[in-house]
């Protein structure tokens, strides 16, 4: 046998050996799927897909169930998450929520200081004249979220902006938020999401 043949046989054996030791635990397998878009650590690259790291576990659970039951119906929910969540058991949903909630959050992105300052004011104080309450009252002083109120800190601003728009147009149902965003202008939305991404 030539040394080249031996090298090929050895590397093939190593390769197949590695292949046979693939990750098979149900949670691990599901995380690999989620991680394709959201990042295996819950920190996504594309702003189409939200960061899940450090998100409130009850909120993740609530949303996954809403996808599964098709009650959250904004365009991306339908295109991506209806299928993705359709076969998740309640047990798996809890495990996923627990896993992602415990991952370290994505670092903030500091851009456009003037807009950040404007957004911070809106987030902390609301706009009484427009009937917009302070966002912080539900989402927490540092936008860390609370139970089913989602963490917003460090979230991709294009994702947040899109959510505000689909909630405003009622493509996404979010009872508390419908009243809050009713009078929010697009400029105000842009300011507040820029601030949130900076956290």
């Amino acid at each position: 046998m030539s040394s080249r043949f031996l090298a090929v046989a050895l590397s093939t054996s190593l390769y197949l050996g590695a292949l046979a030791h693939g990750a098979d635990a149900p949670l691990q397998k599901t995380l690999v799927t989620c991680g394709t878009c959201h990042g295996i650590n819950g920190r996504s690259v594309s702003p189409t897909f939200p960061n899940l790291a450090a998100q409130q576990a009850p909120y993740i659970e609530l949303q996954l169930k809403a996808f599964k039951e098709q009650t959250r119906a904004d365009p991306d929910a339908q295109a991506y998450m209806w299928g993705m969540a359709s076969q998740l058991s309640d047990g798996m949903i809890s495990q996923l929520a627990d896993y992602f909630s415990k991952q370290p959050p994505a670092p903030g992105k500091l851009e456009k200081p003037a807009l950040i300052a404007q957004g911070k004011r809106l987030f902390e104080e609301g706009v009484a004249a427009q009937g917009i309450p302070p966002c912080a009252s539900c989402h927490g002083a540092h936008a860390e979220g609370m139970a089913t109120f989602p963490r917003l800190a460090g979230q991709h601003s294009p994702y947040l902006l899109k959510q505000l728009l689909v909630i405003q147009s009622v493509l996404r149902t979010a009872p508390v938020m419908h009243g809050v965003v009713k009078n929010l202008t697009k400029d105000q939305m842009q300011a507040v999401v820029t601030y949130l991404e900076s956290l």
């Binding site: 292949l19 693939g22 650590n41």
Partner: peptide, 23 residues
């Protein structure tokens, strides 16, 4: 094709790595 994810380490930081091997 046959493909699967392979664990490439047991340390916590290795969870940030992914390896797919396939045929």
């Amino acid at each position: 094709r046959y493909a699967r994810h392979v664990d490439i380490g047991s340390r916590p930081e290795s969870q940030n790595h992914s390896l797919v091997l396939g045929i």
